[in-house]
Amino acid sequence: MINLNKNNFNRRWEDYRKFTVIIIMIIIGELINSTRDVIKEKIEEKDAEYIKKIAREQVECGANYVDVNSGAFVWDEVDYLIWLVETVQEVVDVPLTLDSPNPEALKKAAEIHKGIPMINSITAEKERYDEIMPILKEYKSDVIALCISDDGMPDSVDDRLKIAEKLIDSFEKEDIDLDRVYLDPLVKPISVNGEFGYQVLDTIQKISEWNTGIHMTCGLSNISYGLPKRSLLNQAFLIMAMERGLDSAIIDPTDKDMIKLIKAAEVLLNKDPYGKNYLKAVRAGELD
């Protein structure tokens, strides 16, 4: 089982308990992503009200971080990302997850972000690692570390563990507190290969057993690409991954069924002692 860092957990708890929804899993709200057509359109129109509404909704539903991505605008990514950070921070207090492979976009967005941002993402690809590491250091940011190396996308549990080990070693050398790092084992679509689910689950378990204090997160919805009724698969997979040690997820927090399942799983995995949050949510009518 993963070694949840209590201090970090309490900090988040204090920060977010003003909302009735309390989720012990660390939720990164994925909705403000320009590769989604509706968001792309709203960003282009600079429809601040719409973006603010989506940001607020995600936090009210339990998001601990709000992801912002303007990657669909290849020429104006930096400007739009800055606009997103400014716009979203007008209405939510949780930190934002700055989502770009582009170091310039990340740096400029981190610069104007109020408080400590999360960087999404660093990888073990040498060039990307070298460019993004200084940003982590300068802004003391949290970071999502994706299991990709210069050798390519991982194809097995072993590939992932090797990349994870390399990343963890590098972070320790750079004096990056692993409690700030969210490792994403890289989820690939189950529709393409039936083993892709197990590969991620086994990786999560192994890394959790290392007890380094690193968080385990994942871009969950990749698992269901190419199949119908995707949210059903996403939900089932999330529960399985939680049992293996996943303690964070990049999801749509407004998916009520998903949130309900997470709360139930937290009781069952003894992450919600005495079912305190669960019962609170029941009484508030949130699980109906």
Binding site: P189, S191, V192, Y225, G226, L227, P228
Partner: peptide, 10 residues
Amino acid sequence: AGDMFVPEVL
């Protein structure tokens, strides 16, 4: 048309 899915195509 969305009547068949990736695993079926494979």
